[in-house]
């Protein structure tokens, strides 16, 4: 059953002269985990804010759970759960109090409330710390609590804006386990943004967004199939010359990225020996790999989605948040 629960048509959002979202068309089906993948500043959070009725679009239309986000925001809000990119817990309250506040605001019936709260606490393994002030929680615990809060009121659609940002790999894996468990247990659609490629791989379908536009949409396999065959990466000290030779000898167009050349070939295993034989430029390494979403992104945009600089930006952001919190 391919019922659409999130749908946008020509969604546009401009902040003054900044065009954050430039005509997005999306369709998310009920029960799937939909990944929204893109580099910093691509417009992911802006899109989520529109879908969650926190921002009104400059133009275009968005339907969530069958309701229009601008005309029926109340109906949309009652049916969604949201985990923000930035923390949004009250750290002077206990974990349980945060959940109670939320469940109460979302009208979870009194008889259900207690059971439901206990259930989500158990799922994110915070039962033991339910009575502790959130102030005393680690970053990963806070994130888990926010996810628990996002689902305590039985949302139809759960929006997660970079749920694992700034967390260590172990915690990230745990969070993914919760999400998969959640999907098995309840009929819920998950819409998440990320700029971790390996996370996008775990989604049923993904949309890749760059500069406010969707540049590809499909299952991870479909997108990778679009790259065509295998990816061969050649590392050399003279990339320009090597590129020239490859163009002449194999009629292939390599993508140059620093001292790396990337080639897409149908059969990598038989191509590599021929390549090594024909190149006169000294080569320091040749790697053969199956295409990853990284390659998809590179192919579509000509740049890597995530480099050191971006990582540092995120680190700075986390540091800033921690600092802001202490004041």
């Amino acid at each position: 059953m391919d019922e659409t629960v999130v749908e946008t048509r020509g969604l546009i959002k401009t902040y003054g002269r900044v065009e954050a979202v430039r005509g997005i068309d999306l369709a998310v089906h009920r029960g799937e985990v939909f990944g929204f993948l893109g580099p910093n500043g691509a417009g992911k959070s802006t899109t989520i804010s529109i879908l969650c009725t926190l921002l009104s679009p400059t133009a275009g239309q968005a339907l969530v759970a069958g309701y229009d986000v601008t005309r029926q925001p109340g109906a949309v809000r009652a049916r969604i759960g949201l985990v923000f990119q930035d923390p949004s817990l009250d750290d002077q309250l206990t974990a349980r109090e945060n959940l109670e506040f939320h469940a109460f605001l979302y009208n979870v019936p009194r008889a259900e409330r207690r059971r439901r709260i206990d259930g989500v606490l158990e799922m994110v393994e915070l039962t033991e710390r339910a009575g502790s002030l959130v102030r005393t929680f680690s970053g990963g615990m806070k994130r888990r609590l926010e996810i628990a809060r996002g689902i305590v009121h039985y949302p139809e659609v759960l929006f997660l804006d970079e749920p694992t940002i700034g967390l260590d790999p172990q915690t990230r894996n745990r969070i993914w386990e919760y999400l998969h468990a959640l999907r098995r247990r309840e009929e819920i659609t998950i819409f998440m943004t990320t700029h971790y490629m390996d996370e996008a791989e775990q989604c049923d379908r993904i949309a890749i967004i760059d500069h406010g536009q969707i540049i590809a949409q499909g299952t991870p396999e479909e997108l990778k199939a679009g790259v065509g065959g295998d990816v061969v990466t050649v590392t050399t000290r003279n990339p320009a010359l090597a590129a020239d030779e490859i163009r002449r000898a194999f009629e292939l167009e390599p993508a140059v990225d620093g001292s790396n050349l990337r080639l897409e070939v149908a059969d990598g295993a038989s191509f590599v020996p021929r390549l090594v034989r024909d190149l006169t430029v000294p080569v320091s390494a040749v790697t053969l790999s199956r295409p990853t979403l990284d390659h998809v992104f590179l192919k579509l945009t000509g740049k890597a989605i995530r480099d050191e600089e971006v990582d540092q930006k995120d680190a700075m952001r986390m540091m800033h948040q921690r600092w802001a919190r202490r004041r």
Partner: peptide, 14 residues
Amino acid sequence: DRDFGFLKEVLVAP
């Protein structure tokens, strides 16, 4: 509350 993000949690509630 705005600084700490908690206000958003309230503003997105139904």
